[in-house]
């Protein structure tokens, strides 16, 4: 198999994006076909308004300009994973950015129209898992890191350690939870602010130079 062929291979494309996962895409050269597939503009990349995360199902793209603040990502996350409806314990977080976020954005700031969901970065070297004193955050066979509810003692070390504070200790169960890459947030996003581009489409776009 030639290097050229391997670059176009579905799994290899995913590995390329794993390296970019969660990182700034500023300075990354993308073909117009790839930009179109991701649903973003070169300008948005240059302005650091787009982040991508490598999921098993495809590439998760967060487009801040498209977020309309409906919170359906949090709703679908908690209905799917927690059997209830909540913002605070959601694994994807938009409400904390809606009113007045730590970055000076939100409806009650001067940047009124800047709000968007924060998603788990699925870090290669996970601060949450590294900080857990119980070793409760471990990757399964599918590579997805989950919080082992039996081991978790709700100490909150993972919340503090995560630079984006994405894990949350549920105040009712006193157990932490983090994104398990189920895709419910994306499936229910009505504006396409969150989208998962399947790997075969990424591969196809990569072939169009």
């Amino acid at each position: 198999m030639s290097d050229q062929k391997r670059f176009l291979d579905k799994d290899y494309t995913r590995r390329q994006f794993l390296k970019l996962s969660g990182k700034s895409l500023v300075g990354v050269a993308m073909s117009s076909a790839m930009l179109s597939t991701l649903g973003v503009t070169a300008g948005a990349l240059a302005e650091d308004q787009v982040r991508v995360w490598a999921f098993p199902q495809g590439l998760l793209v967060v487009n801040a300009d498209r977020c309309v603040g409906c919170q359906r990502c949090e709703i679908n996350c908690t209905l799917t994973n927690d059997g209830c409806c909540s913002s605070y314990i959601s694994r994807v977080k938009v409400t904390r950015n809606l009113y007045s976020s730590r970055n000076g954005n939100g409806l009650y700031t001067e940047n009124n129209w800047t709000y968007f969901p924060d998603t788990c970065r699925q870090c290669e070297d996970p601060a949450c898992g590294n900080a857990c004193p119980m070793g409760a955050i471990v990757a399964g066979e599918d590579g997805i890191r989950r919080v082992d509810q039996d081991k978790c003692v709700g100490c909150g070390a993972c919340v503090e350690a995560c630079p984006w504070h994405m894990p949350t200790v549920n105040p009712v169960t006193n157990k932490s939870s983090k994104c398990v890459m189920c895709g419910a947030c994306v499936e229910g996003c009505p504006s396409g602010a969150l989208s998962i581009v399947p790997w075969d489409k990424i591969t196809a776009a990569a072939q169009e130079v």
Binding site: G83, C84, S86, Y88, V172, G188
Partner: peptide, 22 residues
């Protein structure tokens, strides 16, 4: 500020009904 949750009897059914509506 509310950090709690609303308990739902059949959460996946609510999700499916919501998806059907949308």
């Amino acid at each position: 500020r509310g950090t709690g949750a609303v308990k739902i009897a059949r959460p996946l059914e609510v999700k499916l009904l919501s998806n059907y509506m949308i």
